[in-house]
Design a protein around this nucleic acid. Structure first.
Lengths: 215, 215
DNA sequence: CGACGGCTTGATAAGCGTCAACTGAGGTGG
DNA sequence: CCACCTCAGTTGACGCTTATCAAGCCGTCG
């Protein structure tokens, strides 16, 4: 829980007192866009999709949250996107008022949160580049390499990448359709870049993929 | 300069002492992606484009900065994107070290900056929705309405919208080509939604455009 | 006046979306 | 125990939106 690494042990205890554990079943909703944000979550297990909807049903996933990630920081009063559990999810929930008070009282915690938000912003800008200017194959390869990085930071394998989300989720994250995502997976497999395995992929040509992603 | 509204007058004086005015001519570069960030800017006049480049030259504009906006907050060490002046630009520059020290010393300023970053993040997610799921016409209409909002906040007209950036800039912001942007402008003009005027557009059917953008 | 850059418009093509059929795994019930 | 259903994913045929290539227009500036 890297954000809290800057806290003294008494502060950690304080934070601990605020938190209460929660779990969500697969497909369960954590919160919906526009709803007043009463809580902040720190994910401890499972994966969550964060998305925005258009009135006609078109969906854009703006991010996937993995263990260690925070949810609910990026809103002053109401959530800017909806979130639901992809698989069974466990998290620590902090009531917003208590969280807010603690942040006000601990500037170094605020500094940490600001750095976190800044990092999120950088990721969002990278995603804008992907959505605006990359083709389908580049999008998927970038996505796989990003997931690799994220799992690696959590101590998972760097060759076999877990993908808890569905093809539809990936499509809605990459601004594509499920068919295009499926076809692009197949193409990468056919070209021996990846091997498709249950609930994930094995990366066979990391170098080739990296150069494609850089291009 | 809304971010500073939370500062006492002596603190403002302190900030003032750190700042020094700078100007950039049209097309001049403020900073480039990857360059160590030695300064933070507060725009006072003119417009700036912020963009990321791929090695093969594809460009994605991640935002336009207008007077009052801050540049250089969203990076710890190096700039995450490049920035150059669209027209003649004036700004206040703050050396990074002094800026950083001031932020550490003034938690309420930090809080303000955090809110600003959070707002930027929300905008970026909205742009992800636009780039991933909207068609050309919706993109352009959303863009025009957003510019309207922004100019309105600066006290400008809400019917005639200034567009200091080129068609190519708009295309690179919306993830389109210059031809598609030009055709879509023409189509909106043909349908009496807008009137194209020198350096901008006049909005003729704000209601119709708003419903299109909401869809 | 001619050159240049920004913009528009047209013809054509490609990439991805749409529609539809099919596969295979997992779960359910007769 | 096996037939059946469901659902996620895959694959194919076709078409639409947008990209690409190309030509022309217009205002500015040397």
């Amino acid at each position: 829980m890297s954000i809290c690494a800057c806290l003294a042990s008494d502060e950690l205890a304080l934070l601990d007192a605020l938190a209460h554990p929660v779990t969500f079943g697969a497909k369960e909703t954590l919160f919906v866009q526009g709803q007043p944000a009463e809580a902040v979550y720190n994910l401890t297990g499972g994966a969550v999709r964060l998305y925005k909807l258009l009135p006609d049903g078109r969906r854009q996933i703006v991010g996937f949250a993995l263990p260690g990630d925070f949810l609910g920081l990026a809103m002053r009063d109401a959530f800017g996107f909806s979130a639901d559990a992809i698989e069974t999810v466990t998290a620590c929930a902090f009531p917003r008022s208590a969280y807010s008070a603690l942040v006000d009282a601990k500037p170094h915690l605020l500094r940490r949160l600001h750095d976190y938000a800044t990092h999120e912003l950088t990721l969002a800008q990278e995603q804008m580049l992907l959505l605006g200017r990359r083709n389908a194959e580049e999008r998927l390869v970038c996505f796989l390499l990003t997931m690799r990085e994220r799992w690696a930071r959590l101590g998972r394998s760097t060759t076999t990448i877990e993908l808890p989300m569905s093809r539809q989720d990936i499509a809605d994250f990459l601004g594509l359709t499920i068919e295009t995502v499926s076809r692009t997976f197949s193409k990468l497999a056919r070209n021996r870049k990846i091997l498709i395995v249950p609930d994930g992929v094995r990366l066979l040509d990391i170098e080739g993929m990296t150069s494609l992603a850089a291009a």
